[in-house]
Design a protein around this nucleic acid. Sequence first.
DNA 1: CACCAGGGCGCG
DNA 2: AAAGCGCGCCCTGGTG
Length: 847
Amino acid sequence: MNKRLRLAVRNAVCTDCALHEEADGEHRCVTGQGPNGARIAVVTKTPLSTESRMRRELETYLRDVGIDLTQIMWLSALKCQVWGMEATKVHQKACAPYLRREFEFLNPEFVLCLGAEAWFAASGWADITKNRGKTFAVTEGTGVIFPTISPSAVNRNPGLIGGFLADLRYFARMVNDTAGADVPPHHVPPPDRVHTVATKQGLRAVVRALRAATVVSYDIETTGASPWDTDGRIVSLSLTTATDGGMDTAEVWQIPLYHPESPWRTKWRAVLRALAKYLCAVPKRVAHNAKFDSKWMTYFDVPMLPTFDTIIALALLDENQPKGLKPTAQQRLGADPWGIDTKDLLNTPLDEVLAYNGLDTWHTLRLYYVLRVELSEHKRTLRLFQHLMMPLIQELVLVEINGVYVDRDQLEQNWLEVKTILDRIHAGLREHLPPDNDIPEQFFNRRGELQINFNASNFARWWLFEYLGLPVLATGKSGMPSMAEDIMASLAEQHPAAKLMVERVEWNKYDTAFFTPWSQQIDANSRMHTVFKPWGTRTGRLSSGKEDAEKITAGARNQKGVNLQQVPRNKLARGVFGAPPGSRFVEADYSQIELRLAAFFAKERRMLHLYATGQDIHMATAMQMTGKPASAVTPEERKKAKAVNFGFLYGMGWMKFIETAWSNYGLRVTEHEARAFREAFFAGFPDLLPWHAKQRRLVRKYGRVETPMGRIRHLPDIYSPDKGVQAEAERQAINSPVQALASDMAALSMVHVSREFRRRGMDSIAIGLVHDAVNYEIPNDELSEALPLIKGTMETLPLRELFGLDLTVPIIADVKVGTHWGGASEVPGVVVSTPAELNRWILENVS
DNA sequence: CACCAGGGCGCG
DNA sequence: AAAGCGCGCCCTGGTG
């Protein structure tokens, strides 16, 4: 503790906020620690003792970036050292004057604020995530204030480490620079190579640069959630052009478009279109998350197809690393922190928007030069990048713009059906509610109204497990009684309310998770659009949902996403989607693809034989489980057998099997039976366990596994000291190549089918990928041409030509056709491949 | 008001 | 000691 500071500032009998009640003696009003005359003040949330872990961690970080620790005075936003009591804004406000007094006494040149509380105490301002990484001169006489996030935020979320370290590096350069707070630019474009395009002459200069460029990186800033929304606009466009000379020749072009201060505000689309020809003609077109920018530009008539997406390159090189542009540029390229609040761009000064926009493209191009070298060192992965991922992005741009057709009438009708059922359920549930005066006060709001909540809330738990006295069969981590479906199902016999609660869960989900968000997402053309993320999974599958939060602007913050990969498999839900009049919805899915590929990887002789002779492995398991002949096995039973096959295939143990058999079959299986069934499964397919062992060896040796198409799964957990974590990595090593190859094949088929549609001048389009299935929308008069094309492409992908891969297992695709997704009927395989029969089938089935 | 984790459940 | 894998969204309750 610094004595002089303590004497000048400390108030040992402070009662300014409630925290003093818990703090006494030395823990009340703890002032700064450090030498008199320290140039740097480091502000944390609470006082840190010199021995604390946090203090040592921070010292390591600061020393590593080159800060002289003897120059630091350690201060805190909250002066009372209190455990188990959270400080509110009121406490923070009350305490802030003491920190200000410390500043006045010390007069530090630099103030580093770690976390929201420290930033608030030092500046009086909030929004740490918005303001971090920038310098502020808040009051006269106090030096530069530099806020960043707290190290505990980094500990909770390791993905933040890159940005945190970049902030510290920047702070260190500022501190160590002899010129004081005037930090020289670091990895930013020289000012004479940054151009704002606000005149016709400027536009001509961009065109000249584009014509000379061999590579361009591009990035747009937008407002509105999607280009087809009424408020969807491109606020600005930035380009960084370069010739063969690399970054030394790079020039940044910042083009204001719809921004209020833009000279092109009213004719922004014309300006964009005027540039289109030159933009699209640059040989290499680079972007970070290119699908986003290309989608908007394509929608506004500039079909900019990317050739290099830095986010895809990052994902292929290491699927586990943070993939954002800013953390990557800061971590890997030593870039200074940059960024603005993008939530309300139209009210952000144009120069700020442009500077931000321009820096994005500058760093994207820098990243491109690094990543293309790294990719070229992994030949197979490079092939995957070139032959699958970049073409896939180009297709997904179109898939997302097209969206999927929604039958509004059907949606209304099905939704009404759900609402009617829910009303009945809720009426039934209310009959079992206690009279108001039996209900604890906490469930009434301030106005005295009862807050009934049948979801898994405190109210529902009190009502079921305390008032109705149902037994607690399971609890969650936090000790709360579980209200999971299977738990409630076992309570259903004890009380009719429990039975109604089980029914409610399913129907309520239709209402809140499906029909409600869907109804909000239909565009003026009755189409619904999802956002696919081709870098969204560890295995290479696409994820489906909404755009990342930072892309969504103020008015659309609460925009819901639509995940077209979790639409319930029934007519009620899938029957809402379909094809517009005159077209058909076609679903083409790979039959048992993962099992086939597992047979291929394991060289499993019996599986390969079953497939070579056209048999069905799920059916074989269903027969074994039910003891029925094939003719008596129901589709439902076969579906359950599928879950069992995949379970054992990917390392499920007998205990989990007992659970699965109970919840899926309603079958009570003993430990002995479960072990026997598992043994029977592996005895039936004797080459599977040796394959499991091989994958375990591989991942132990290399820390990763790879598909023959070049997709790598890094599994560093295999080196964890925790055996359970290791075992998890081993199971992932078994599953990943199979799942990855299957999804890459589905994606590749979509790319090739769509390209062929266009080459032949057809109007058929792809509208979605569901892991191992591809959905298409086909005009009726193109069905006879499209169906064989789809099936044929899926079954005979050019894997050997593109990836040097020979699959030794037959691949089968099933094709279903219908007016709607739900209710589409399967076209027999032989019919699809026989032109005459297919034409007859179409005549009979398509009106 | 915004964000987060955990529980739960939809899909492959 | 315990053991299928891969996702996204809705809801709650807690916290700043």
